[in-house]
């Protein structure tokens, strides 16, 4: 049995980024293959479904990755570093274009879990995703980012606090309230 896989596929992200710092295009290709789709979806959801802007930010992230690869410390986690770049790009975009930074009413007081329906196994994905996007756009971008980094990217609370440069307690609080709020808002989909 011969191993047909390229050796680069088995290399860690941290090793690859070191090679990107030395302008290794193969290493960049591999990192791009691993992260481009995830980054695009993160941007897409953070920007309320604006795909063209999400593609632009993905391009900008790639350029920053190439430019700043030499600043990456090997003792850190690459995905945390990469999503820090992505998160900061999103914040810059929000600052530049306020239309994406929807104001959020405080949902913490409303008890959205008065009824506790079970989720239907056959959720209409399109409708659910449309509604989820709509609800995500309506909440504060920091809460939105915490939510996506946790449930889309599966980062730990500690990693999210590093990415967003805020205390872990703040991340926990944002995550809890956003999850409760969204699960309450989307509970109607049990009947679909």
């Amino acid at each position: 049995m011969t191993n047909t896989q390229s050796p680069i596929v088995s290399e860690t992200d941290e090793t690859l980024v070191g090679r990107i710092a030395q302008s290794d295009t193969l290493a960049f290709d591999e990192i791009y293959r691993r992260y481009s789709n995830r980054l695009l979806h993160y941007f897409y959801r953070m920007l309320g479904g604006n795909e063209s802007l999400a593609q632009d930010l993905l391009q900008e992230t790639c350029i920053r990755l190439i430019e700043k690869a030499y600043t990456f410390r090997e003792d850190g986690k690459f995905s945390t570093w990469l999503f820090t770049i992505a998160h900061n790009l999103c914040l810059n975009t929000f600052r530049a274009n306020k239309k994406f930074g929807g104001s959020v009413t405080d949902h913490s007081g409303s008890d959205t879990l008065k009824e506790y329906p079970a989720w239907d196994d056959q959720i209409d994905h399109d409708r659910f995703m449309r509604s989820l996007h709509k609800e995500l756009v309506g909440i504060d971008e920091k809460k939105r980012s915490v939510f996506l980094l946790r449930f889309q990217e599966h980062h730990s609370i500690r990693e999210i606090s590093k990415i967003m440069d805020c205390p872990e307690g703040t991340v926990k609080s944002r995550l809890f309230h956003t999850t409760r709020y969204l699960s309450g808002r989307l509970r109607d989909y049990k009947e679909i």
Binding site: C62, F147, L182
Partner: peptide, 28 residues
Amino acid sequence: YLLQSISVFEQELDPETHPETKPLPHIR
């Protein structure tokens, strides 16, 4: 209910379940 919600969110937010949104080739 919270646990069920989270599992649905994780499943629905997985980029692999939404292949219609892909990075444009010129970016690479």
